[in-house]
Computed example of a mutant assay.
Amino acid sequence: MKFHFVHTNFNVLDLKRSMDFYEKALGLKEARRIEGNGFTIVYLDDGVTDFQLELTWLHDRAEPYDLGEQEFHLALRVDDFEAAHRLHEEMGCICYENHAMGIYFIQDPDQYWIEVLPARG
């Protein structure tokens, strides 16, 4: 029996704002969408792997989600780490840097953390 990763979910308060952020910050684009009674789910992909980020928007939700102590995160590897860092600095979304490990984190509009890793070398 083998399992493989398919997607991870982030619940969001403003779907368009989140989709705009993920496209600008990480180049993720809409792959498919599900419209339901009171919710919308959009799957974003990177055009390279099969893994997707699922954004779930509950239409009636107004209060921010409790994300605990930010101990969980999504991680992406980038081929041009310096260019990505410059873009994220310009966007003002870098929330933590670990220079010793050579990584940093950005924060999306709903306060989810995304780790940015350099290409393997």
Score class of each variant (00 low, 15 high):
Ser18Thr: 04
Thr8Ile: 05
Phe51Ser: 07
Leu13Pro: 00
Thr56Met: 12
His85Thr: 01
Val116Ala: 01
Leu117Pro: 00
Ala75Tyr: 03
Asn37Val: 08
Gly27Cys: 04
Thr56Pro: 00
Asp45Ser: 12
Val12His: 05
Cys95Pro: 01
Gln70Arg: 13
Ala31Ser: 11
His88Ala: 10
Tyr43Leu: 14
Leu44Lys: 02
Phe10Ala: 10
Ala62Phe: 15
Pro64Gly: 04
Glu54Gly: 03
Pro64Lys: 08
Leu53Ala: 01
Lys2Ala: 15
Asn98Tyr: 09
Glu54Phe: 06
Asn37Ile: 05
Asp45Lys: 08
Ile106Asn: 02
Thr8Arg: 03
Pro64Val: 04
Met1Asn: 06
Phe21Lys: 02
Ala119Leu: 10
Phe51His: 10
Asp66Lys: 04
Trp113Lys: 08
Lys24His: 13
His88Thr: 08
Glu90Ile: 01
Phe10Cys: 06
Val116Cys: 01
Phe10Trp: 11
Tyr65Ser: 02
Leu74Thr: 07
Leu13Thr: 02
Leu28Glu: 03
Thr40Tyr: 10
Ile114Thr: 15
His4Gln: 15
Asp14Ser: 04
Tyr65Val: 03
Ala75Asp: 01
Tyr65Ile: 07
Lys24Leu: 11
Asp50Leu: 12
Ile114Gln: 09
Gln111Ala: 13
Asp20Ala: 11
Glu35Ser: 13
Arg61Asn: 07
Asp46Ala: 08
His73Pro: 01
His4Cys: 14
Glu82Gly: 04
Glu63Ala: 15
Ala62Glu: 15
Arg33Ala: 05
Thr8Asp: 04
Gln52Arg: 15
Leu58Tyr: 14
Asp108Glu: 09
His99Ala: 13
Tyr104Phe: 15
Ile106Gln: 03
Asp46Val: 05
Arg77Lys: 10
Arg86Thr: 09
Asn98Asp: 14
Tyr96Pro: 00
Thr40Glu: 15
Asn11Thr: 05
His7Glu: 09
Leu58Met: 14
